[in-house]
């Protein structure tokens, strides 16, 4: 049984059909990539899965349980956590406190346990030096890591990463990929949305491609890059 499935999910914003019956399925331990040009519905898909938006059709299940219609924080507590495309740290709280909140609420830990846990996670993602700084004052690459650390603090089984590597330098991307590999090895399944092809292809075992709110292709990274519709829709525009 799949860990996370989305079945013909659709979402409209007024006249705009942002998602037209998109499905995906994630096995335990897997890394799934979701790619597509800007505005193809990747972020909307994540928001529907995590209950930020209400789906207009279709259903989402997590560990066999229907989660469509549940609130974001409930879904988070089940172990399905999203990071945002625009890193949104709680700017006036310290880096530590940011992660700490995740442990307190996402996992329901005690104050002491959540604090210890937060230190450990920050150590792991490489933010040990800035734990007591206000999170508004750290740079973009660090914010991305903080976003990830905050998600990890919730004790997730699955993390949905929404362009967590956007705006990073190639070297930083390599670092981030390595970190994600490590997280995945520890048993956390990942769904990775990226605009940067290189980043997704390097880590995903399976990839789905969205265009104008529809799934136009899926397969292993190799299959997908050679798919004609994908080249037309997505790579075509970039390589033209």
């Amino acid at each position: 049984m799949s860990l996370l499935t989305a079945d013909s999910v659709s979402k409209n914003f007024g006249a705009l059909n942002a998602l037209k019956g998109v499905g995906l399925s994630l096995e335990s331990g897997q890394v799934l990539g979701v790619i597509g040009p800007n505005g193809s519905g990747k972020t909307t898909l994540f928001n529907v899965i995590t209950g930020v938006y209400k789906a207009d059709g279709g259903k989402v299940t997590f560990e066999g349980r229907r989660i469509t219609g549940m609130a974001t924080h409930e879904i988070c507590r089940l172990g399905l956590v999203k990071t945002s495309q625009i890193a949104k740290p709680f700017a006036r709280m310290t880096v530590l406190e940011n992660v700490f909140v995740g442990g307190l609420y996402g996992r329901g830990l005690s104050l002491t346990r959540a604090r210890e846990d937060a230190y450990e996670i920050l150590e792991m993602v490489g933010l040990a030096d800035v734990v007591h700084q206000p999170s508004g004052s750290i740079n973009v690459a660090m914010r991305r890591r903080l976003e990830l650390a905050r998600a990890l603090a919730c004790g997730p089984k699955v993390i949905l990463l929404d362009e967590n590597m956007a705006g990073l330098t190639p070297a930083e991307i390599d670092g981030a990929l390595e970190l994600l590999h490590g997280i995945n090895k520890n048993g956390v399944s990942l769904v990775v949305v990226e605009h940067v092809m290189q980043a997704v292809m390097g880590i995903s075992e399976y990839v789905i491609v969205l265009d104008y709110g529809e799934k136009i292709a899926e397969g292993t990274p190799d299959e997908v890059v050679n798919n004609r519709r994908v080249i037309e829709a997505y790579l075509g525009e970039e390589y033209a």
Partner: peptide, 16 residues
């Protein structure tokens, strides 16, 4: 405080 900073992000980390 998390709500004050960013309500959507707060919900994402499990704050009801």
């Amino acid at each position: 405080k998390a709500i004050h900073e960013d309500e959507e992000a707060a919900a994402q980390v499990g704050v009801g």
